[in-house]
Design a protein around this nucleic acid. Structure first.
Lengths: 203, 203
DNA sequence: TGTACATCAGTGAACGCGCGTTCACTGATGTAC
DNA sequence: TGTACATCAGTGAACGCGCGTTCACTGATGTAC
């Protein structure tokens, strides 16, 4: 592909180059130089748009949380007005995101960048988490008040199981998956919700 | 600490240096050179004991799986003859291992080394997984045969939730943990098992 | 419409660094007689 | 018990490499008059 002296939209091109690199070599495999080369540009040019390597990764993660949050919100809204359907949908959305945006996902959760260091990143991450917590809160209102665990607790459970399924069975990190990750997670969430008393025992 | 020309037990010293490095800088932060320096030895000396950098990490992971497998087996045996107690104990053991042996844990699950590349590693890893699956199998026999999900499925669920809790709430990767990870996991497993019909609904 | 000029986004060369790895070597150890 | 010698486990210097980053620069763009 030909281009002149000016790139046009180098910033986003770098983000996308980074995404591709991260997706197929892991967050470790990414280097600023390679991203620059992939965007057909000198490494030094990167510094017109980012403070440095970490800043570029952070931007990738930020965009990831943005997409992630939007996806979660959409899934949540789509399941309304049923609290149960909304909750389950967010679980599915989690996995769908990991599958569809592996580079973003890795940058967000596996790059090891401190979320506390980039405050804007913490903020956009909190939004995504908020959706799941809202769904959990709404769901918990269907439980008798005396046997109602905190909503943040079971949103954490679902989040943890989802994340575990991604790490262990969608990446190669655990065993080869005995079941398609989507089915595995769906079944797991189903059993869990039954345990909460939100699904009849013999459905 | 003084030592002569010969180290005595350099191999294990290197493993332990690697562990310490991995534990506090992540699997990425580890370098062969730093491990050598920590063991008070020239980088070249490492090659008397390991084929190279990756081989050293693999050995760390291998030792980790060894300990992990033993811990799981112990927990399992300790919960006998109750299938339920044995199963729950393995879940707790998982988290205890991650807490107590963070360097091993990271080398095993976060270092991104291909388990398929080191066959001996795949083998020792399968053993650990086997314990959990055996516990699940045994547990599933308490369920009516017609409503009995495959044992590997719910051992996968428990594994995923455990792993997710470690990654998200014991490391800094997710939100700051709303609850102690141990409590969170214990509650999660409890709800899950109730959903399976293995714990009475109003216990 | 044309020209002068400020601004901007790239280049390319250079840097210092630490990495993993190799090599010929040497000091220490232990075994045979 | 003492000596010769093979074996082993380290050293230290060197390598090529790619990294992130800096710097003075230059080519392209767009705006004012």
């Amino acid at each position: 592909m030909k281009r002149g002296y000016h790139h046009g939209n180098l910033r986003q091109a770098l983000v996308e180059a980074a995404l591709a690199l991260i997706a197929d070599k892991g967050p470790t495999g990414f280097t600023l130089s390679e991203a620059a080369k992939a965007a057909d540009v000198t490494p030094a040019a990167v510094y017109r748009h980012f403070a440095g390597r970490d800043d570029l990764i952070a931007e990738v993660a930020r965009q990831g949380f943005d997409i992630f949050g939007a996806l979660m919100e959409y899934a949540y809204a789509d399941g309304q007005p049923s609290a149960l359907a909304a909750f389950e949908a967010t679980g599915r959305a989690y996995l769908a995101f990991a599958r569809k945006y592996p580079g973003h996902y890795m940058a967000m959760f596996e790059s090891g960048l401190a979320p506390a260091n980039h405050p804007e990143l913490a903020q956009v991450s909190a939004r995504a988490r908020g959706v799941l917590e809202r769904a959990a809160q709404q769901l918990s209102e269907h439980l008798p008040a005396d046997r109602r665990p905190p909503a943040t607790m079971f949103s954490s459970h679902i989040w943890a199981m989802s994340h575990g399924v991604v790490e262990l069975f969608m990446r190669g990190n655990g065993a080869p998956s005995p079941f398609p990750p989507e089915d595995l997670l769906e079944a797991g969430i189903g059993i869990y919700l039954r345990g909460l008393g939100l699904i009849p025992a013999d459905s």
